[in-house]
Write a protein that binds this DNA or RNA. Structure first.
Lengths: 118, 118
DNA sequence: AATTTCTTCTATAGTCTGTAGAAGCACTTC
DNA sequence: GAAGTGCTTCTACAGACTATAGAAGAAATT
């Protein structure tokens, strides 16, 4: 539900970029590499816990350094955010028109061909 | 920037629905009609002030009951949210594919024709 | 059993939102 | 011009959420 905070966002990026299940330590290392600072592992664990509560990650607690994985792909997540933004808006054509007007030619091409299929 | 709270959202809806510039009292009345409760005008004014700080509304403070208006249309706002969600995502086709897969046939038609033009 | 490794608990400070009273300013009216 | 009336600004507080991590507890290792 709620939008992600900055660190939560960074952690999700680490999880997504990992592709597979990773530990808090992996996330910690990934964060440190991506940003220019360090975080306590407990901080990372707290955030992972919150992300799990939000349904964005799931954990395997049988393995000893617990493993975390993204529940949905980044693409799924982003697409869902877009749907959420759209919501119940009645003026769909107005929204779509402005949306389409703001994307690159490449993006437009992709959308076009995706709409052809289906 | 930050996502809107529930009341902020309701206030924006009132402003958007008004179509033109409206006063805090108008918003108050609109809110009361839309929901099943009342708010102090000061509450509405505080929220309008916050929305102004966020750049979502602008105010004309020369008129005595100050007038507020939406800076962007609802469609603009929603389209911008969608762009923001998309952000720098590299896997555009993955996102678009999932996004398109989740919209109605009517929406798809609209998008298709909008993409044909331009 | 001692040590190391990892997790859970607990806690604090900061930001944001909801909520609105109190106090101030301006315009009208006696 | 004193007094109301209507509107705005100031100030404030409580609740939620986020960032942050130490301390303490549990488990695996030596």
């Amino acid at each position: 539900m709620g939008a992600l905070g900055e660190l939560e966002r960074a952690v999700m990026d680490a999880v997504w970029d990992a592709g597979a299940a990773i530990t808090a330590y992996d996330v910690q290392a990934s964060l440190e590499q991506a940003q220019q600072r360090t975080w306590a592992v407990t901080t990372v664990l707290t955030v992972l816990g919150r992300l799990e509560k939000k349904g964005l990650v799931s954990s395997d607690r049988s393995a000893r350094p617990h493993h975390y994985r993204a529940v949905a792909s980044r693409a799924d997540h982003v697409a869902e955010l877009m749907h959420e933004a759209l919501g119940e808006t009645t003026d769909r054509s107005g929204v779509f028109s402005r949306f389409v007007g703001g994307i690159s030619a490449e993006d437009a091409d992709m959308l076009r061909s995706l709409l052809r299929e289906g």
